[in-house]
Computed example of a mutant assay.
Amino acid sequence: MKSAKRVLAVLLSIAMLSMMLLSVTGCKPAESDPGTADPGTSDPGTTDPGTADPGAEQKKLKIVFTITHQNNEFTVGMGEEFLAEGARRGHDVSLVNANLDSALQVSQMETAVTQGADAIAVFSVNVSSLGAGLQAAKNAGVPVFTIHSGVDDESLRVAHIGSNLVEGGKMKTEQMIRDLQEKYPDATDIEIGSMLGGIGAQTQIDITEGECQALGYTYSATPKYPIATSADERIKIVVQDTGSWQGPAAADLAEVWLDSYPGIKAINCNNDGMALGIWPILQAKNRTDVLLYGHDGTPTTLQAIKDGKMAGTAKVDIEGMIKALYDSIEANAAGENVESVQYILPDLVTPENVDEYLK
Rank of each mutant, 00 (worst) to 15 (best):
A119F: 08
D327Y: 02
A103I: 04
R89P: 00
M195N: 07
I281H: 06
A52W: 05
W257K: 09
V151R: 07
E154C: 00
V256L: 10
S340K: 15
G263R: 13
D307G: 03
K224Q: 14
S163N: 10
A221C: 01
A137C: 14
P226G: 01
I329A: 11
P226S: 10
G162A: 15
G297T: 08
N99E: 13
L258Q: 09
G197C: 03
F74G: 04
E85W: 03
C27N: 11
E352A: 12
A334Y: 01
E73F: 04
D33G: 05
S107L: 06
D189V: 12
L325C: 01
K183G: 01
E73W: 04
M195A: 13
L12P: 00
D317V: 02
M109I: 15
E211Q: 14
V166K: 12
K323R: 12
E81R: 13
Q283M: 07
Y184M: 02
I14T: 14
A311N: 11
T51H: 10
G55T: 13
D53M: 06
G169D: 05
G243M: 09
Y326T: 05
I264S: 11
T188W: 01
H295E: 12
A311R: 13
D317M: 02
Y293L: 03
V354Q: 05
P185D: 03
T218F: 04
A214M: 10
V64T: 15
D33V: 05
I318V: 15
T300N: 15
A9Y: 12
P49N: 03
G90K: 08
P226C: 06
D43W: 11
V93S: 05
T203N: 14
V76N: 13
V64F: 08
K236T: 06
G50Q: 12
Q105M: 07
G197A: 11
I237L: 04
L345A: 15
M171S: 07
E211G: 10
D355E: 15
G150L: 02
D179G: 01
Y357H: 07
A231E: 05
A132P: 00
Y343T: 11
Q175L: 11
A137W: 07
V96D: 06
Q175V: 01
G50Y: 09
